[in-house]
Design a protein around this nucleic acid. Structure first.
Length: 910
DNA sequence: CGGCAAATACTG
DNA sequence: CAGTAT
DNA sequence: GCCG
């Protein structure tokens, strides 16, 4: 039995377990059909892999002449003679392709290329430029170059009405573009419809309606990929035929095909003994692909059910979520409601694309990412050059044409041969895949233990590692197994004792239900107690398990390295109760606010950090020398501190806050739903005060209008006592709603309230099951909200809870006590597994969270309100996450997992 | 020079 | 899908 | 703006 069959069978079994399979024989046939399809796919993949071996040098031209590779290979190939034609063809093809673009597109136009990080090859740009010049157009290779030709302002005015076409790389950051343009007093929003992204030039042109939407063009890179059989271009009919054939078969026939295929599979394995490792690794790749497919299918199912739920919620939302009415909603109603203008369409973009292309008799191309990547990466040794293939891969992924929302996680990562071997041994030993359903006994976990002497050297992976600034430590040896997505490698955990295993089992509901120990039965603490200002509610106490992931020496070293340096992070030091440098932080916060408004992310982060650092000091700064050596405060900041110490204020801050524009923007962005961008847009329209805004409400959306309506109340911070009253009101409502179950839930006010502040901007209320069980009454949140609305607490709803993939729900609204003012109220429900993470997150402060997350990141984890995951970051945008979070049931455990000292909430006000 | 926390929802 | 807001 |  091949490994494929095992996986498939497992998937089928899982289906059975999940009661998805009906006894209807049709379903069985469908599964069988699926199996056949998959095995066919496998076969074709293998064939392609074999074919790949023979023609190796074809794919080198991905990034043609931007590097020397092209030249090198050109020479090689010229000597070789055989492949020369290929390159000539490509050049020709490129010319042809460009010729297809309507000539008058560039006629008499000014064309500016953004050459920074350009992803069009120089040759192609030259051809473009030539063509433009032939059409009486003007070409510039930077905005600067364009503006340099003007001697006087008068000259510039003359140009005003000319049409400028910007061509820029598709990886250019929109902010950068904006910045560049603003240097020349050009507003991005005005020119944006003249910006053309290079790689999908024609696609974009089509979308922007510059040219007729004729399907004559596929972007170059796609063609290249198509040449190399990476797409199924034009094969769709054949595939459909084949599919139809398989569908018409009966089970025994299809079984034959499966058998045949698996025979071929095993034959191909035996045939080349000398290359056995590679062959087997091939197998593993296929396995990965297929298991990923299965995962994807499962995810899609989840998605649809989630979409349904979302639709429903939306329906309820727009019909005042009458719970009686809800029961009567029929599928038809939902369908109708979805089609009405009122509702957002949930169609994925790929489906839309498909529909768009339907009348043009084009089948949208689906990119086989894995295959593509594997082909591309294979060439890295030949090239001998450092090319970021992953980036080019991502470009493909981002393509509007190919984009498919469900195609995330389709990366293929190299696994070292030794790892693969270990993996194979494991599979042979166990015969079953210890994937998520695995962990049948403790022994199975033990194999994950890696002796530090057996450290595996991996050179290939080096370039993928983004490990930091290291002189003394070589982190490149970290074993990639830690992050691999192969089903049986998903989690690599080693457990010190039974307790850890138990808690993980419990968390993931892995298999059997564990009989609860006496110590866990005891807890009945804090049930329904009133929130006490000082004493924090305790979750059912769990053994402090620390971090069960103790993977490899490289990772251990990495963690140690950062542990030694953790005093650079605020989350490790915390803030004293008192702020000794109020004057300084206040002034710096003014600057911070302004930079935030101006969207200067860099500076605002720097100032946020500086403010955090100063808040964390437990002494008063008397001279600059006191802060001389602190990491994070640079020259400029120190200058400003000096100025504040001497004059009591920062001149720059004063000047900036006094400007009318900044004042207006600050005022306007205090309205809930209006941020700096909207505020500055409003300012451009000459709206400077709330009264003026009230007269121009047509410019606002629903939530912004609500925010504006209660503006005067909402800008005020409420006293702590009022927040307590609101929380009590919510608890009271919850008790009345669920008289029997209420004491199983913790209802905690987080945010600045929990940090012990005297005033609160809003009330954050976290609802979480505390007795370790997890079966939430359906519609808990909706019911609670309705109830609170009936009680007169909630006045307006800003955001209604919707189900998300983690099972958490968030509600945002505006409430009011009798005789009180309107206040912002957030209600959040989190499943019990996320209790610690959620509490940590909503307690803040924002900078404390950032600092802690950054620390986690440096150590090789990813921290969010959904868990602490072991991750590997391939580049800054791509990360691979272990599928299981490190189980932390309380805040303390999160701190412990990161080897940080626990900080009580009042110390987190940085 | 590139990065700076992470994730979600809504809008147009 | 980018942008905005939280 | 600061860091590496």
């Amino acid at each position: 039995m091949s490994q494929l069959d095992q996986i498939l069978e497992e998937a089928v079994k899982k289906n059975e377990n999940n009661k998805r399979e009906v006894k209807n024989p049709l379903t069985k046939e469908m599964i069988q059909y699926q199996k056949v399809l998959e095995s066919q796919q496998l076969k074709s993949q293998i064939n392609q892999q074999h074919a790949k071996k023979e023609v190796k040098k074809e794919y080198i031209v991905i990034d043609e002449d931007s590097t020397d590779i092209y030249q090198q290979n050109k020479i090689q190939n010229t000597q070789n003679g055989s492949q020369k034609v290929k390159y000539v063809d490509i050049l020709k093809q490129r010319q042809e392709e460009i010729n297809k673009i309507p000539k008058d597109l560039f006629k008499s136009k000014i064309v500016i290329f953004f050459m920074r990080n350009f992803d069009l090859s120089e040759k192609r740009v030259k051809i473009f430029a030539e063509q433009i010049k032939n059409n009486q157009g003007e070409v510039y290779f930077s905005i600067q170059e364009y503006f340099e030709k003007f001697l006087t302002f008068y000259d510039l005015i003359q140009e005003k009405n000319k049409h400028i076409l910007f061509i820029c790389p598709d990886n250019i950051k929109i902010d950068e573009l904006r910045k560049q343009l603003s240097q020349y007093s050009l507003d991005l929003d005005v020119v944006i419809n003249k910006v053309v992204i290079s790689e999908y030039l024609v696609e974009v042109l089509k979308q922007k309606k510059y040219i007729n939407p004729e399907p004559y063009y596929f972007s170059y890179i796609n063609q290249l990929a198509a040449q190399n059989n990476l797409f199924h271009v034009g094969q769709q009919e054949e595939i459909n035929k084949e599919k139809q054939q398989i569908k018409n078969m009966n089970i025994s026939q299809s079984q034959q095909i499966i058998d045949e295929n698996s025979k071929q599979l095993s034959n191909s394995k035996v045939s080349s003994d000398e290359d056995s490792i590679q062959e087997n690794s091939l197998d593993l790749e296929c396995l990965t692909n297929i298991s990923r497919d299965i995962l994807r299918q499962r995810k899609m199912k989840q998605d649809t059910s989630r979409q349904k739920a979302a639709k429903k919620t939306r329906y309820l939302w727009d019909y005042n979520y009458d719970s009686e009415q809800e029961q009567q909603i029929s599928e038809d109603d939902l369908e109708k409601s979805q089609n009405s203008d009122k509702f957002v369409s949930f169609d994925s973009s790929f489906e839309q694309k498909k529909a768009e292309y339907a009348d043009q008799s084009i089948t949208p191309i689906k990119l086989d990412n894995q295959l593509f990547l594997s082909k591309v990466t294979e060439n890295e040794e030949i090239s001998g050059q450092k090319i970021n293939y992953l980036t080019s891969f991502k470009k493909l992924k981002r393509s509007p044409q190919l984009d498919n929302k469900n195609s995330q996680d389709q990366f293929l990562f190299k696994i070292s041969k030794s790892t693969i071997k270990k993996e194979q041994d494991l599979i042979q030993q166990n015969q079953t895949s210890p994937s998520k359903t695995g962990f049948k006994n403790k022994n199975q976990l033990d194999y994950f233990e890696v002796d530090s002497d057996q450290e595996i050297q991996i050179k290939d992976e080096q370039k993928y590692l983004d490990y930091l600034d290291e002189d003394d430590e070589d982190f490149s040896k970290i074993d990639q197994r830690f992050i691999t997505e192969l089903p049986n490698l998903k989690v690599e955990a080693k457990f010190k004792n039974d307790q850890q295993l138990k808690s993980l089992k419990k968390k993931d509901k892995i298999i059997e239900i564990i009989s609860l120990d006496s110590d866990e039965d005891e807890k009945e603490t804090n049930l329904g107690q009133q929130i006490n200002d000082q004493e924090q509610p305790k979750f059912v106490s769990q053994p402090n398990i620390g971090n069960p992931f103790k993977p490899f020496s490289g990772q251990i070293r990495r963690e140690r390295y950062w542990d030694e340096r953790k005093d650079h992070f605020i989350c490790a030091t915390g803030a004293p109760k008192e702020n000794f440098n109020k004057l300084i932080t206040e002034e710096l916060e003014k600057l911070l606010k302004i930079y935030q408004q101006e969207k200067d992310i860099g500076r605002s982060i720097a100032y946020r950090k500086a403010v955090g650092i100063i808040k964390s000091l437990d002494f008063q700064i008397k001279s600059v020398k006191d802060v001389q050596k602190i990491n994070g405060l640079g020259e400029k900041t120190k200058e400003k501190i000096k100025e504040i110490l001497e004059t009591g204020q920062c001149q720059r801050a004063q000047i900036l806050t006094q400007s009318e524009r900044n004042q207006a923007i600050e005022l306007l962005s205090q309205v809930w739903g209006i941020g700096p961008s909207t505020a500055s847009q409003l300012y451009e329209r000459n709206i400077k005060t709330i009264a003026e805004l009230r007269q121009n409400q047509h410019l606002l959306n629903k939530n912004q209008k609500i925010g504006l309506q209660y503006f005067e109340d909402l800008v005020e911070r409420m006293p702590r006592e009022e927040a307590t009253l609101i929380v009590n009101e919510v608890i009271k409502g919850f008790k009345e709603l669920y008289p029997e179950e209420h004491d199983r839930y913790d209802i905690i006010a987080c945010g600045s309230y929990r940090r012990g502040k005297e005033t609160c901007g809003d009330v954050d209320i976290l609802i979480c099951r505390k007795d370790g069980e997890e079966n939430k009454p359906k519609k808990l949140m909706i019911n609670l909200i309705c109830k609170l609305e009936q009680d007169g607490l909630l006045i307006e709803h800003l955001q209604f809870p919707r189900p998300n993939q983690y099972g958490s729900e968030t509600y945002m609204g505006i409430g009011k006590l009798k005789d009180g003012k309107h206040r912002r109220i957030d209600l959040k429900y989190y499943p019990k597994d996320l209790y610690g993470y959620a509490l940590l997150y909503f307690t803040g402060s924002d900078y404390f969270n950032r600092s802690m997350r950054l620390f986690a990141r440096k150590k090789g984890y990813s921290l969010s309100d959904h868990g602490l995951y072991a991750v590997n970051r391939i580049d800054n945008k791509t990360k691979i996450t272990s599928s299981l979070a490190i189980p932390c049931y309380t805040e303390e455990e999160v701190f412990a997992a990161l080897n940080l000292e626990y900080k009580p909430p009042y110390m987190r006000s940085v």
